[in-house]
Amino acid sequence: MTDRHATAPDGARIGFDTAGVGEPLVLLAGQANSRRWWDPVRADFAVSYTTIATDHLGTGTSDSPGYAEWSTRRFARDVVAVLDELGVGRAHVYGTSMGGRVAQWVAADHPGRVGALVLGCTTGGGAGTVAADPDILRPLAVDADTAREALTELMVGPQWRWGHPGPLPVLGDDAMTERARREHRRASARHDAWEALPGIVAPTLVLHGTSDALTPADNGCRLAERISGAQLYLVEGARHAYFLERREQASAAVLRFLAAHPLERS
């Protein structure tokens, strides 16, 4: 994989890379994370798809300009800029956490660019939001070590951690500036695609871990109800990073869905 860049409408450079063969599949990471978020599971999809993993503004090799608009809707336009750079007219889109919020806007604002849509551990925002328990979120605002440990527990359970002692790639991009982190938090918190969701025409799969305390599973249920014809797949006992904890199960569900909706028919 070679680092590449696309140019957003406001001139910011957006980092991305591609891996695999087959129909294009965009992979969108969570809040304050670069494309490294997908490293543990990307090979599952690269066997059958040309995966396109992007760095959100302010992460990885993307720019972090002071003049930029920071919103999930803007991040969606950055995704389209990457597709334009690659000469890709339509692609499947799989977004998790904040990446799922971004994916909603890609599908809502640019319907002709999206084949199948997969939304994981995310929310439609606005009236559809089911908030996390404030007591669960409070440790995330303490010192860095406490916040990191708390976020780890929200992402994956102790059994998974025991079997995977290495660094957890979904805890944030250490190279981000504090300003970029703040902007990501605001963009994610202010996300509201609720009124736009019924207009999504792409075949949609919604996945959610039933033990997700960071973004409670009712968010996934409401999201699936809001998008016409959407399928809901609940991953029993999984926390926020269901795609890590139940990798085999979750990847297989996504691959079955994508195979059932090839670009030429979607």
Results as ranks from 00 to 15, higher is better:
E85Q: 15
G60K: 10
S188Y: 04
R265I: 14
V235H: 09
W37V: 02
A6T: 13
P134D: 06
V26P: 13
P111S: 14
D173M: 04
C221R: 02
V130W: 01
D173W: 01
D78Y: 14
R226K: 14
T61L: 13
M98E: 03
A150L: 08
L207D: 02
E69H: 01
A6E: 06
S266G: 12
A8S: 14
A116Y: 15
Q231E: 09
W162C: 03
W160M: 03
G20K: 09
S188N: 05
D174M: 08
A196N: 02
V235D: 07
R179D: 04
V235S: 09
V80A: 15
G237F: 06
G125H: 10
A230S: 03
E183P: 02
A259I: 05
P198Y: 02
A196Y: 05
S228P: 06
A175Q: 13
A252T: 14
G157Q: 08
I200S: 05
V21H: 08
H208M: 08
L168C: 03
L27Q: 04
D145T: 09
L154E: 00
A193C: 00
V118G: 03
V170D: 06
L27M: 14
G229C: 14
R36Y: 00
G166C: 12
F257P: 09
G99I: 11
T2N: 04
